[in-house]
Nucleic acid binder design. Structure first.
Length: 1017
RNA sequence: GGGUCAGUGGCGGAACCGGUAUACGCGCAACACUUAAAAUGUUGUCCGCACUUCGCGGAUGAGGGUUCGAUUCCCUCCUGACCCACCA
């Protein structure tokens, strides 16, 4: 027998396997498929350490077993090479990212190849390959077409060190996930993907997935769906209202009655004059009735409903004093209706003294129904232009504001502060309203004059905007805030007057950016105590002692209980009260059930070089082209965008012009200005517009790192058809359907809320396009537990504790390393590396090697004990690999070998079985021994052994005897021994008699083939 | 603060659905082989008492409960890891 020379054996078989193309994907068969996928790596400059391959070993073991079980396997590997780490590495080492990535990939492949993986390298993908990213760009374009990709100017997270914007998901604890620098807020034009449209499905489809509970929970938590209500808190004003009704209407119509009552509910005076000749109105007739019958003062607000708006304008024109405001709903200043002519066309003078009107009113609000069937956008624009203000586009319940309740009008009149809450049951204890510093109310022209401490407020807002996320949240429990003096809100439940505060603990981007605060929320409670804002309670906890404290406001109770001080809702439980209160407020037009998500749209642009160019061209000529302008309404940031104050049409790059290649440039360092380095490459930026041929400019932002990995699992499948991924997508449909979904996906838990959400989002989008037929991409997901360094810390170059797989493979062999990593402990658990304990795995393989010498060719009679062991081992190893309990599979193989070694000699068939079971873990040594005992085909082409369920038990088993729960004796018997016989046998044993003598046997139990339990008294 | 998971020898860990806790491996000890060491093999190795043997008692983070029987199920608490975190 020769020495076990791992270097020789491993090199030899790796070469043979490759030459024979043993691991090429075979798919022209009716056999069941199994798609086993690793999260593909990011090829960093440091190469792999021993921790990285752990997951790859697992998928290799799993897929090797599956292949032997007759499945057709897809087990590919590729590289995710765009993004910050590659780029930062390149900048630091002064190599072009492209060169660096090529080098790193080569190094990774070399390191992977010595471990003997069964990857089908023909299907390798590289996200930085233009053939690959043209599809990344293509998917983006499809999103653009569906309105799921849009631009936004909202402030986003900005990393001053990486000099790029970041997605919400890239921020950890207020710091940049890459470099740890605290992120800042920066407003800039950026691309955003509307992942929030998929929020609900991203939660509900988690249901059927075979995923670790922890990931499912973190995804739910990240998406953060919460059901609640939006409740409107009207701002208190001293206004009195004059409502002017429209053509063919009377104040007795439901709509006017409803509007009047709603306003009166909040203590406003309302006048609705009856306008004469409602069916054949004239200007003089209607205006003079108003002038004669209505009183106006500086607090008067006129509400004009459709034709009433025209009357309102004429009235204001005639007034000799100033009134507070004008609100028009469906107003117009020219009688050119969309649908038909109206008989008052010639009875009104369509010339207006807009200057006079403007000087006579404090504020003007123009409402236009987006579905208006009579008044066109041009008419509304004419009105707005005349009055020098903007249009508020709203959706009316009846086209043209003809519903019997039009809550948008009420909103415009009352200036409600909408507030999101999940605890509507606490509304009667609402003590104050808190706005986020970014709340639009604080910069609304209409209110500035009413706020008495304007300067203080704007200082506060200013400071809040300068703070980083960390500073805003890190100050911990201590709240800061400032009262908005001069403005008060009304509690919609009881009409009570509430102060309004601004505080930066209220987040602008969640809910409505405003809350109502009360005694039943820790944060609100703290803030009220800090600033001495009076609060009261409205929920009584069940616990009486607690209630005593809560009632005295000594302690905050934020749980659920029974309502008190809540008018007609007293005595109800929180849960029921919530529903009823929202329903009740809804009838007053002041509340609506709403859903909110913590998930925010995916900020998709990066101001960096090393990423996929966003395939969009901006064209000024297209914008100027009136044909474009006529199409209404053009959606800002979806159809057109404003750059440096000028509008441009957003023109997608045509599919056939893809890929938009990343230009190869000398200087790719980030600019830090918010512009990508691509912006300086004028040859690349300036291109003809594909739509009109005019002067176009390319988008210069690139896509984030997570783009390419959001669909790579499909690219492997597509590679099976054509190495160059060609259009159209329909070419690939059949194969995609065949291999989808991924049956087993293995990777690190750190991707829980990024890659795994993004990929699910893209997959669902592709599902909606009909490109994939499953609604989820990854059926089963397993975590790899980290391998820590021997010192217990993370393995990192920084700590100098990295262990290199090349060294380990050289010293111990790939098979030993594979066995060791699988044997270390539970697969999904983090465990520290320990080179010393590797000898156990090495010894095991050496024993296998030596044991081959004991094998005899002739099949002797089966030895019962060995036979049972083999059957148990086949069963356990198969089941354990299936459920990824590799450590116990190996311990079973070790136990099995221990028993085999005790035998004088062993027949070849036993040994062959053993080799096949060990093969997924240690493919090289088993292949070598397989050939040594006379086989000429690869062991991987043999069939996974099966076991005989009748041979899992020994002829004789040890049976334990328990007396009052304690083991007092054991005896051996056949496993099929009956209860009766078991008991008799037990009772006759002297060790047992000692304990039961003189006592009464009360009860007996038995577990077949295992134990008898006797209870005595 | 919320969520998820875990806590078993000197160490990594095993134990199915409640049925002989400590499998398997590392380490350690003794012995064999050797001039010697390494390697290898054999045996032993949870703790305490007793010890010639049979044996007795205790132990799965702590305390309690359910049960003939609990590492496993329930309650309270302690500790640790990971993820999320002013989300109204």
């Amino acid at each position: 027998m020769t020495e076990y020379d791992h270097l020789k054996i491993e090199a030899k078989w790796q070469k043979k396997w490759e030459e024979e193309g043993l691991f090429a994907t075979k798919e022209n068969s009716t056999n069941k498929k199994c798609y086993v996928l690793d999260m593909f790596p990011y090829p960093s400059g440091e190469g792999l350490h021993v921790g990285h391959p752990k997951g790859y070993i697992a998928t290799d073991v799993y897929s090797r077993m599956k292949a032997m079980q007759g499945y057709y396997i897809l087990h590919p590997m590729g590289f995710d090479a765009f993004g910050l780490p590659a780029e930062n590495y390149a900048i630091k080492n002064k190599v072009h990212p492209k060169t660096a990535v090529e080098k790193n990939i080569a190094r990774y492949k070399e390191q992977l190849s010595i471990l003997g993986f069964n990857y089908d390298w023909d299907r390798e993908v590289d996200t930085t390959d233009p053939e690959y990213y043209k599809w990344t760009q293509w998917i983006f374009l499809q999103m653009l077409k569906k309105g799921l990709a849009y631009q936004s100017d909202e402030p986003i997270n900005w990393c001053p060190s990486c000099k790029t914007g970041l997605a919400n998901e890239d921020v950890e604890d207020g710091k940049c996930e890459r470099c740890g620098t605290p992120v800042e807020k920066k407003a800039m034009r950026q691309w955003v993907l509307k992942i929030t449209d998929y929020a609900d499905r991203l939660i509900s489809d988690l249901e059927g997935l075979n995923w670790p509970k922890s990931i499912i929970e973190s995804q739910k938590n990240w998406i953060g769906r919460s059901e609640g209500a939006t409740i409107k808190f009207p701002i208190k004003t001293g206004y009195n209202f004059v409502i002017l009704h429209g053509f063919t209407a009377t104040p007795e119509d439901d709509f006017y009655k409803w509007l009047k009552e709603s306003l009166e509910d909040f203590g406003h005076k309302v006048q609705i004059p009856v306008l004469p000749d409602t069916n054949e109105p004239t200007e003089d007739g209607q205006v003079s009735v108003v002038m004669d019958n209505v009183t106006f003062d500086e607090n008067t607000v006129i509400v004009g409903h459709i034709l009433g708006s025209v009357v309102a304008l004429k009235v204001i024109e005639k007034l000799d004093k100033k009134i507070a405001g004008l609100v028009t709903a469906g107003g117009f200043v020219s009688p050119n209706f969309k649908d038909k002519d109206r008989n008052f066309k010639d009875k009104f003078d369509w010339n207006f003294d807009f200057e006079k009107i403007k000087s006579n009113v404090g504020f003007i609000k123009i409402l236009q129904d987006i579905n208006d069937s009579a008044v066109s956008v041009e008419q509304a624009e004419e009105l707005a232009n005349g009055l020098g203000t903007d249009i508020d586009y709203v959706e009316a319940t009846g086209s043209h504001f003809t519903g019997s309740e039009e809550s948008t009008i009420l909103d415009a009149i009352l200036y409600n502060i909408p507030v999101f809450t999940t605890r509507a049951d606490t509304i009667f204890s609402a003590a104050f309203v808190v706005l986020s510093p970014e709340h639009p109310l604080l910069s609304d022209k209409r209110f500035l004059s009413m706020i008495s401490n304007r300067e203080e407020i704007s200082n506060y807002i200013n400071e809040a905007s300068k703070k980083t996320e960390i500073e805003r949240t890190d100050e911990g429990k201590k709240k800061t805030g400032i009262e908005v003096k001069g403005l008060r809100a009304t509690n919609p439940a009881d009409g009570g007057e509430l102060p309004i505060w601004v505080s930066d603990f209220v987040l602008a981007h969640y809910g409505t950016g405003a809350i109502f605060a009360d005694a039943h929320d820790e944060r609100d409670f703290d803030m009220a105590k800090l600033y001495n804002i009076p609060i009261k309670v409205s929920i009584r906890p069940d616990d009486g002692k607690l209630w005593e404290k809560v009632e005295k406001l000594e302690e905050c109770f934020s749980g659920e209980g029974v309502l008190v001080n809540s008018g007609e809702f007293d005595g109800l439980k929180s849960e029921e009260a919530r529903l009823k209160i929202v329903e009740w407020l809804k009838t007053k037009g002041l509340a609506d059930k709403t859903l909110n998500y913590k998930l925010r749209d995916w900020v998709f642009s990066r101001q960096r070089y090393w990423g996929e160019p966003i395939p969009v061209i901006y064209c000024r000529k297209c914008w100027e082209d009136t044909n474009f302008k006529k199409q209404e309404p053009l959606r800002k940031n979806i159809d057109f965008v404003v750059i440096d104050g000028k509008e441009y049409m957003i023109v997608p790059v045509p599919e056939n012009d893809l890929p938009v290649k990343l230009p190869n440039v000398e200087s790719y360092e980030p600019t830090g200005t918010g512009e990508s380095p691509l912006a300086n490459i004028s040859d690349w930026v300036n291109v003809p517009c594909p739509e009109c041929g005019g002067e176009g400019k390319r988008e210069t932002n690139t896509m984030p790192q997570w783009a390419g990995s959001s669909w790579y699992y499909l690219a492997y499948i597509m590679k099976g058809i054509s190495n160059n991924l060609e259009f159209p997508i329909s070419k690939y449909k059949e194969k995609i359907d065949k291999w989808q979904p991924v049956d087993l996906y293995v990777g690190g838990a750190e991707h829980a809320t990024r890659h795994l959400i993004y990929a699910r989002f893209w997959h669902k989008f592709l599902y909606d396009l009909g490109i994939v037929s499953t609604n989820e991409p990854f059926d089963r997901l397993q975590h790899v537990g980290l391998i820590m360094a021997e010192d217990g810390r993370k393995m990192s170059k920084r700590y100098g504790n990295v262990i290199n797989p090349d060294d380990i493979v050289k010293r111990f062999g790939a098979d030993t390393m594979r066995v060791y990593e699988m044997f270390m402990g539970p697969f999904d658990q983090a465990i520290a590396w320990n080179t010393d304990s590797m000898v156990g795995s090495r010894r095991f393989l050496e024993r296998v090697w030596k044991f081959a010498g004991k094998v005899t060719a002739n099949d002797k009679e089966a030895i019962n004990e060995v036979d049972t062991m083999m059957n148990i081992t086949i069963k356990k190893v198969g089941e354990d690999i299936e459920s990824m309990k590799f450590n116990t599979a190996i311990s079973q193989l070790m136990s099995c070998l221990n028993l085999l070694e005790k035998q004088e000699s062993i027949s070849q068939s036993y040994f062959e079985t053993f080799l096949m079971l060990l093969n997924p873990f240690a493919p090289h040594i088993t292949e070598e021994l397989w050939h040594q005992i006379g086989h000429s085909k690869s062991i991987t082409e043999s069939f996974w052994p099966s076991y005989d369920p009748d041979k899992l038990l020994l002829d004789e088993v040890k049976i334990a005897v328990q007396i009052n729960g304690k083991i007092r004796a054991t005896f051996t018997a056949s496993p099929s021994i009956e209860k009766q016989e078991m008991e008799e046998k037990a009772m006759s044993m002297p060790e047992v008699l000692r304990w039961i003598e003189g006592k009464k046997v009360v009860k007996t139990f038995h577990v077949p083939g295992k134990l008898v339990s006797i209870v005595v008294q």
